[in-house]
Nucleic acid binder design. Structure first.
Lengths: 291, 291
DNA sequence: GCTTAATCAGGCAAAAATGCAGGTATGGCG
DNA sequence: CGCCATACCTGCATTTTTGCCTGATTAAGC
């Protein structure tokens, strides 16, 4: 058996398709398919059920996945421990979070980070992780949300929110735009804001990202609670504390303990801690991240 | 990094040379060397010191070996658990022991074993294991010897020994041939026999294997204690209990607990338990082998 | 000091793995 | 019902890997 084929196997399990796995691995779909066939022949076991919904793990596949992921994390840690401490951190780090959060973070100190660690590849994604990315070096930034299965949530910063309205229009206190993400689990920020601003206001728009709301406010759609970092940086809208009192949300870093001590994870986590203040106008919480 | 190269790495660590590793893997020495170079380049670490004595692990190499072996055993177990119980056991099993022991065992029921398990490959070796074969599926049969590091010794059978002399010559009670293995650790059988036969006898030959002694006795070199299975099967020599009383030695099965529950190890262990009686004229001890 | 044996590196042809192009099946949609 | 989009599978050129051969180096033995 070729041990490397397990790497391919993990990618297929994660992506749910050969094409997706090929994309993850930076290789061709035919290669992925042939490797899987070879692996299944070697093990004399079908690892996936080829259904219309994609590649679904069989019972044998589940078992193999457990072992393959264990091997994967062990080898990741080995490579990490082996790396020269003087060299920069290396490898891929996935960072999930809201688009606006990532956008603002990307503008603060990313150049210094990548200059210090040339082998580091940061992959930001403004969507929810599609599947539990066990073993991948994955960080996530979410407000208030409960961490998913293996992850643990560490409080990272208090992020100030305030009410904003269009600068060039009459303030209409009864029309609001609001953040909402029906797909996210955890306590709803929409609920919090609704209680905060009162129940007799009309919601004219909800969106999944603050940047969308900011544009809506600028266009005159209504008033909205925005992170001050976004509100203050958006031309054409002004803060108006008379509409609603400012509030703070706690930004959490979600981290799988299994990969928390990898060098590249630490490097990125530390960078985040430094970047939240200038990027999000937030007060960082000196979280006790794992050493 | 190519995970499969760790397999090569383990083989080099075990063999101590590229050529030896290539032999273990059934591949070419150049391939082994190139894979090692690739691996070292990937990890940016020299894993071996190329000395005149061979390939010696560096400190980084030691660490990699630990992880690689852990991965190896985990994958071995995975493949084993995954195999269809109805199919025969598969894979390589190494069996160490005295040449005469292995020779006699090889003549009893080996055909049935291999017929039942076509994928099983038994590699008998009449020498001491050159290095701790961590992770290899290795069984060893030794008399009285203490088990090496990870192995545990299970009593397997009581093997009868008796004195033999040449059938066609006058019995000379003062000339003896004797088993001895200076390389083996553990209590010396030679010492036991010496006490058993008395100190005023002359030792004219020592050898590392009973078959050698049997031939020496037949040639008239002297009297010797032989396993009755060997003595009775050798033409030209006869048992003579008047020279010395028969004794019994305990044959132990040495087994690494980490691999004891592998299917192929179990199959071979059970075969050994059945084969010692007809092959060695021994009374098997129903050892509580790990399930 | 020379020979012998063994091992490790470099050149080159064969073999294997890979990627691309084209073909096929399946589900969604009007 | 047909069209379209997506994803998976097969034939062929290309790249990569492998194995054999040869030469260089080093340790052991006489």
């Amino acid at each position: 058996m070729n041990w490397s084929h397990l790497e391919t196997f993990i990618a297929i399990a994660r992506a749910g398709s050969l094409t997706g796995a090929a994309h993850l691995l930076g290789t061709d779909q035919t290669t992925v398919g042939r490797r899987l066939n070879t692996l299944e022949a070697d093990l004399r076991q079908k690892l996936f059920k080829r259904s219309k919904a994609g590649f679904l793990l069989t019972e044998a596949g589940e078992r193999v996945l457990t072992d393959a992921q264990a091997v994967n994390t062990r080898l990741s840690r080995m490579i990490d421990d082996l790396a020269d401490p003087d060299r920069g951190a290396e490898g891929i780090v996935r960072l999930f979070g809201n688009t606006w959060t990532l956008a603002r973070l990307a503008s603060r100190g990313l150049d210094a980070l990548t200059a210090r660690h040339p082998g580091l590849e940061l992959r930001m994604s403004g969507r929810l992780p599609p599947a539990p990315l066990h073993g991948e070096t994955t960080l996530a930034l979410w407000f208030d949300a409960a961490a998913r299965r293996p992850d643990i949530a560490y409080p990272l910063a208090n992020v100030p929110y305030a009410a904003y309205c269009a600068a060039d229009r009459t303030v209409t206190h009864d029309r609001w735009v609001m953040f909402r993400d029906d797909d996210a689990d955890g306590p709803s920020f929409a609920r919090v804001v609704e209680r905060h601003i009162g129940v007799d206001r009309r919601i004219v728009l909800t969106a999944t990202d603050a940047s969308i709301l900011a544009e809506a406010i600028r266009g005159g759609a209504g008033i909205g609670m925005l992170p001050t970092a976004v509100g203050d940086a958006t031309r054409g809208i002004v803060r108006d504390d008379s509409c609603a009192n400012p509030i703070e949300r706690v930004l959490h870093l979600h981290l799988d303990p299994a990969i928390a001590d990898l060098r590249r994870a630490q490097v990125v986590a530390r960078w985040l801690l430094d970047a939240v203040e200038p990027a999000l106008a937030a007060t960082p919480i000196r979280a006790d991240l794992p050493a």
